[in-house]
Amino acid sequence: MAHKEQIKFFFVIPGILWVLIFTIFPLLYSLRLSFFQARLGQDQTFIGMGNFQGAFSDYRFWNSLSITVFFVVVSVSLTVLLGLGLALLFNRPRRGLRFFRSSFVLPIFTAPIALGYLGLTIFHEDVGAVNVALRMLGVVNPPGWFHQVWAARLAITLVDVWQWTSFCFLVLLAGLQNLPEELYEAAQLDTSSGWGIFRHITLPLLAPVLFTVTILRLVETLKVLDIPFSMTSGGPGAATQTYSFYVYLVGLRNFNAGYASALAYILLLIMLFISSFFFNRLRAIYD
């Protein structure tokens, strides 16, 4: 028995070491760096909360944060709403449903940076599929997707929505298929209103799944980097420079590891606050 117990620990140790080396240690070391003026090739100097104070007086911090907030609001809203609509549409026996599920899930497993380069092709000003289609529809001057501020932001948002709508669809469809049929049968005896059934039965029962999908999408979208990096490189100017993009520039382009660590921890605190708010709301509703 003692030998078997030792073997169990032998198989667990690699996972523990992985977490310690690649998760816990970087997390603690970056926390230490956030209190230091630390640049590559220079001595580290303790400055206390100086990096955090500097962030709140940095206009590029506020610019990247505002761009990220816009991106989060639009992308999360569209992915959740489109995913819910598709889940409701396919929450019934349909021919080819299995094939549709399998094909619809493919964008989730595509590398975001590859999707960014694909978006670069699709939204190309001269030969991109989007502008070609717009010209066929009679639009004389289609937008320059990578030269106009809001057009560039919209293009990045649409690529992200295309990738993550399928995730919301699959999770919400699974939630819908686990709802008890008896409630719908009883409700159909009282009313024929599909909207009433959705509002008073489907939506309340599906709320925990909706909360979960929304918080997962919020966290994922707050730290988006790959798509704006590959599609626009943060341009035009800094119009699509998301928060994580700015942290990347500060840390890996300017080699200011201390300030980049402070920015990363500010984002972590924002995520923790949002997650706590959502879970507290959910607990208040169901307790």
Rank of each mutant, 00 (worst) to 15 (best):
V132E: 10
L249I: 03
I270M: 13
A133H: 05
K4H: 05
F70I: 08
T110E: 14
W150P: 02
T202G: 03
F52D: 03
T79M: 15
I24P: 14
Y246A: 01
L20Q: 04
R135Y: 02
Y265C: 11
G128C: 06
Q241Y: 03
L210S: 02
N280K: 05
I285C: 11
D58Y: 04
G41T: 10
L40C: 08
V12N: 01
M231G: 02
W18L: 15
L20T: 04
G116D: 01
K8T: 09
Y117E: 10
E125Q: 11
Y265P: 09
H200W: 11
H200T: 12
A239C: 07
E5Q: 15
V19T: 11
F10I: 06
L137M: 14
V130R: 01
F278K: 00
I16L: 12
A186M: 14
V213P: 00
T45F: 05
G235Q: 08
S276E: 14
G138N: 13
S275V: 14
V247T: 13
V139K: 09
G96M: 07
R217A: 01
G83S: 03
I47Q: 00
E5C: 10
L225R: 08
S103L: 11
L263D: 00
S77T: 15
L33W: 04
V247E: 09
V130S: 04
S192A: 13
E125H: 07
V130W: 04
I108T: 03
F10N: 08
M271L: 12
L137Y: 07
V73C: 09
V209T: 07
G48D: 08
V73Y: 07
S261F: 12
L225W: 11
M271W: 04
V130E: 02
G85M: 05
P26Q: 06
E181P: 05
S276Q: 07
L154F: 15
F25R: 09
V140M: 08
L205D: 00
A114P: 03
I21Q: 10
V159E: 09
F167N: 01
F52R: 08
Q44A: 09
I215Q: 03
G96H: 03
V209G: 00
W62A: 14
P143A: 01
N256F: 14
N178R: 00
T45R: 11
N131M: 09
P112E: 09
V69L: 13
R98A: 13
A133S: 09
N280C: 12
N178F: 00
D43C: 07
L134I: 15
S275M: 11
V80G: 05
L205Y: 02
N254D: 08
T240A: 01
T240V: 07
A114I: 10
Y59L: 06
T214K: 04
L249N: 12
A2Y: 15
P107E: 06
T121D: 05
V139D: 06
T191V: 05
S77K: 06
A114H: 05
V219M: 13
F273C: 08
F9M: 13
L81W: 01
C168K: 01
